[in-house]
């Protein structure tokens, strides 16, 4: 299904074999004296995915699975160790000058914490106008003002709120301001790094609905990062599941919730409280995510996996397609996932 779709829509964002290592060694002198080698943390390991125009792609995973690192890699806040990020066929790495500036403008980000993402010393109007000035999107001060007021109106605030400071707003209102700021750059693609996880549940729904409305209005494409599967279900067309920096499953949203292909995805879904009262027993997620500095051999999930055998312990699984899902799992490839633990 995904393959036939992607022939018609060319991907807006194409991520190929993206890896990111961080040097976590001790200082040089300590290493020499203590005779220790350099140590690297693999935050993102050979991740590939693509997002079509107008689609919402969600990345889910536990803390430390590399979700936010991928977000920062895509918006070029940090640079990848290897791999490629193509946006509309171009890479931020290889472009210069005006092309770079346009590319940069088209990719914007909404941050997790609306209390840290707005400069407390700036008025809301100046905060929203910053991208307009930085990218030269308005001809006059009057234009800037009008755009800011329009954007405030679009995100459900009043135009006169531009005179206020961020501390005069609640968390949800601040996130609306952050969204207005991202929109003022006139982007095509928004990276949303857990945009609702710092908000109250009642406000979360408002912000999510706002984001969907804006997506329809402006034809935006979202990369939506979350650890909350119920939020993701509401938003995403496709979902990628991350485990210890690698993508273990990449499926269309409905498929993932109905027929999870990877044991880890099943484990996550089994932990969701059962609202339909279907009598399903909720299973606790067992074990913890291992250290990314010294990951397990073979499939990194094998210590927590009930289907693991010797192959899983020794060899890294490759990505294969099954029923429209891209899965990286030996058990799935070898047909060992016979019984469905769900239900």
């Amino acid at each position: 299904m995904s393959s036939s779709n992607s022939i018609h829509n060319k991907p807006l964002l194409d991520v190929k074999n993206l890896s990111c290592h961080f040097d976590v060694s001790k200082p040089w002198l300590n290493r020499v004296i203590e005779g220790e080698p350099q140590r690297f943390l693999t935050a993102v390991d050979q991740v590939s995915f693509s997002i079509n125009q107008g689609e919402t792609f969600a990345l889910v995973g536990e803390s430390g699975s590399g979700k936010s690192t991928i977000a920062k890699l895509i918006v070029d806040l940090i640079h990848p160790s290897s791999g490629e990020i193509l946006f509309d066929g171009q890479s931020l790495k290889n472009t210069r000058g005006d092309t770079f500036k346009t590319l940069r403008r088209r990719i914007q980000m909404i941050f997790q914490d609306p209390f840290a993402s707005l400069n407390p010393r700036w008025r809301v109007g100046d905060i929203i106008a910053e991208p307009i000035h930085a990218f030269g999107l308005a001809k006059s001060q009057h234009d800037v003002r009008r755009t800011v007021e329009e954007l405030l109106d679009k995100v459900g605030l009043a135009g006169r709120d531009r005179h206020k400071y961020p501390h005069e707003f609640s968390g949800g209102q601040r996130q609306r301001i952050a969204i207005a700021r991202a929109l003022s750059a006139q982007p095509d693609f928004l990276v949303c790094d857990e945009p609702t996880s710092a908000l109250d549940v009642s406000v979360q729904a408002q912000i999510l609905n706002l984001m969907r409305d804006l997506q329809d209005e402006f034809g935006l494409t979202y990369l939506f990062i979350s650890h909350d599967l119920s939020v993701v279900k509401h938003m995403a067309d496709r979902i990628g599941v991350l485990y210890l920096g690698s993508m273990v499953e990449n499926s269309p949203s409905d498929q993932l919730f109905d027929q999870p292909a990877h044991p880890y995805t099943r484990m996550l879904l089994d932990a969701i409280p059962d609202h339909e009262m279907s009598g399903r027993r909720r299973k606790q997620v067992t074990g913890e995510i291992p250290s990314p500095i010294d990951p397990p051999s073979g499939c990194t999930f094998h210590p927590r996996c009930e289907f693991a055998n010797d192959t899983c312990k020794e060899q890294r699984p490759s990505i294969h397609e099954t029923k429209g899902s891209l899965v990286s799992c030996w058990a799935s490839e070898e047909g060992r996932l016979a019984h469905q633990p769900k239900g």
């Binding site: 918006v75 980000m109 707005l118 400069n119 910053e130 991208p131 930085a134």
Partner: peptide, 26 residues
């Protein structure tokens, strides 16, 4: 490391402007 500085970097604001207009007042 606060996100408003990262946001400014996304807009291509120069280091000098980030220091002068964002960080210095804080």
């Amino acid at each position: 490391n606060k996100e408003y500085v990262q946001a400014a970097r996304l807009f291509g604001v120069s280091s000098f402007r980030i220091l002068a207009r964002h960080i210095l007042p804080n």
